[in-house]
Amino acid sequence: MMSTDQRDFAQVKTTELFITRQGWFKREYELTDGQFVYAKLRYRSNFKRDAIIELPQNSWTIKRKGWFNRTLLLNLGEDDTIGNIIPETWKRDFNLKLDDGFEATYLYKKLFSKSLVLTNGQLGDIFQITQKAFSIKQPFTVTIDLITKPDNMPPLPLLIMIGLHVILLRQQQAASQ
């Protein structure tokens, strides 16, 4: 039985986690190890693209910077902007730039890959999110590559859920073309 309350990520004992989808029609996802929930991603409504990421300590909102702007704003709470998520023009990559100086890139290493990797210049690969074919309840697995987390790095569940949002955005864009 899955617990609905969230647990602190410092208590994770494994390097492989799952992202589960909650309900058939609700766009809600949970980061879990099969027993505990560490983060949630949900959308304000089916038509509004604002994503809300919830961790036990805080919540963040991802919004579009402007009507015709592709850059996404990462806000602590509702309106306190702490960084940008910038899509590359001719690639599938997204660059994450936080105001505290942390920078990383969400990228697909191979052309037809189903794995999104978060990589950083100093740390290397931090984690990868792999899409599982034909899996509706647990559509994604997360493999954490980072051994030790530096102090200036944002919470890992936040970075994972931003990556999930990037994947879902790409799927939405592909379906609309």
Rank of each mutant, 00 (worst) to 15 (best):
P87K: 02
K65Q: 14
D145H: 15
R42I: 10
A51D: 05
K13E: 11
Q131A: 13
L55M: 11
K110W: 10
K63Y: 04
Q171T: 01
K137F: 15
N69E: 11
Q35D: 10
V166I: 09
D50E: 15
I62H: 04
R170L: 10
L159M: 14
T4K: 02
L168P: 00
K13I: 09
T119C: 10
G101E: 07
Q171E: 15
E28N: 06
V37T: 14
P56E: 04
A10E: 05
T81M: 12
D125M: 01
K63W: 03
Y43E: 05
S176Y: 07
K26H: 12
N152A: 10
K40F: 02
L146A: 08
T61K: 14
L146M: 10
R7P: 00
N120F: 11
I129V: 15
K13D: 11
V142E: 09
G66N: 13
Y43M: 05
L98I: 07
N84L: 15
Q131R: 13
R7G: 00
F140L: 04
R49E: 09
G23M: 07
L111C: 09
S45K: 08
N46Y: 07
D151G: 01
I126D: 00
R70H: 12
T71A: 13
L111W: 14
L156Q: 07
F18V: 04
L73D: 11
S3K: 13
R92P: 09
Y43F: 15
A51V: 03
K40C: 02
